[in-house]
């Protein structure tokens, strides 16, 4: 077991009369963001809710740092569009809310909140007293995620963090999430995994009440390229690599990496 990892053993999740995923065994390590993929209804959000402690597992156990995982106060769960949770008049109030709820003194919460907001790429000097509802879409998302994670939990669970963002917003957010994952365990549920691919840890693919684990993105891409039923990779990516199949170490589904791969191997039609 990796030192900083969230390990699950024979985990069954869902509802007593309708288990969604059964007998799940694997590990989400720290250092790189981990992805959970699967179709709608495959149990991705249910898994996040179970890891966060909002749903009790039907069976199985979870371990963190070699002791049983108790999520209370050590995890953050950000649902899709976390900016919908805004309820404070200023960005500062929004970010410090979680710290104040945990009993931090106002000055300390202010100081920590400001530095955390900077870390998420939002200029705290400029936006601390702004109305969070009036920020741009990308800024709202980063403020919302900063507000959700400001108490620096061990495990960060994100549901569709890139939904509805433009290219620049996605690029910024992916780099911030990756930097966050260097110190914590980050688990991301997404239908849009491509932007994460250059740097990802474990991939868990949920389908038919079962989970398939891939130790890194390369393994996942290799299998998904070999068998298109596993996961619908972008058509342009599949078409570009088709002449080179089977590929042991496929490039990430990012235009620059694919172009480099093709130029190194020589153009084939």
């Amino acid at each position: 077991m990796a030192a900083n990892s969230l390990k699950i053993e024979r985990l069954s999740i869902g509802f007593p009369d309708r288990p969604v995923v059964e007998n799940l065994t694997g590990e989400f390590p720290g250092r790189l963001p981990n992805l959970v993929l699967g179709r709608c209804g495959s149990g991705k959000t249910t898994l996040l809710m179970t890891l966060a402690g909002f749903l009790a597992p039907l069976a199985g156990k979870m371990f963190h740092r070699e002791s049983e995982w108790k999520p209370e106060g050590k995890t953050c769960l950000a649902f899709q569009n976390p900016e919908k949770l805004f309820f404070c008049p200023t960005v500062g109030d929004e970010v410090t809310f979680a710290l104040l709820q945990r009993g931090n003194k106002s000055e300390k919460a202010d100081e920590d909140g400001r530095s955390w907001l900077d870390r998420w790429g939002v200029d705290q000097e400029k936006y601390w007293l702004s109305d969070p509802f009036r920020l741009s879409g990308g800024q709202k998302r980063r403020v919302a995620l900063a507000a959700c994670t400001v108490f620096k939990p061990d495990v960060i669970l994100l549901d569709e963090p890139l939904a509805g963002l433009d290219f620049e917003g996605r690029r910024l957010l992916v780099s911030q999430i990756s930097s966050l994952a260097e110190e914590r365990i980050v688990v991301i549920v997404t239908h849009d995994p491509e932007p994460f691919f250059p740097n990802i840890g474990t991939v868990l693919l949920l389908s038919n009440n079962r989970g398939s684990w891939y130790e890194d993105g390369k393994h996942f891409l290799r299998d998904a390229l070999d068998n298109s039923d596993i996961y619908p990779l972008p058509p342009w990516y599949r078409a570009a690599l088709f002449p080179y199949l089977p590929v042991d170490s496929p490039p990430s589904p990012v235009a620059e990496e694919v172009a480099r791969f093709i130029s190194e191997r020589g153009r084939r039609v």
Binding site: G73, K84, L85, F97, A98, A147, C148
Partner: peptide, 12 residues
Amino acid sequence: RIKTAQMARGAK
């Protein structure tokens, strides 16, 4: 859903 998400932030 909002209640669950706010509880994850620490709301009581």
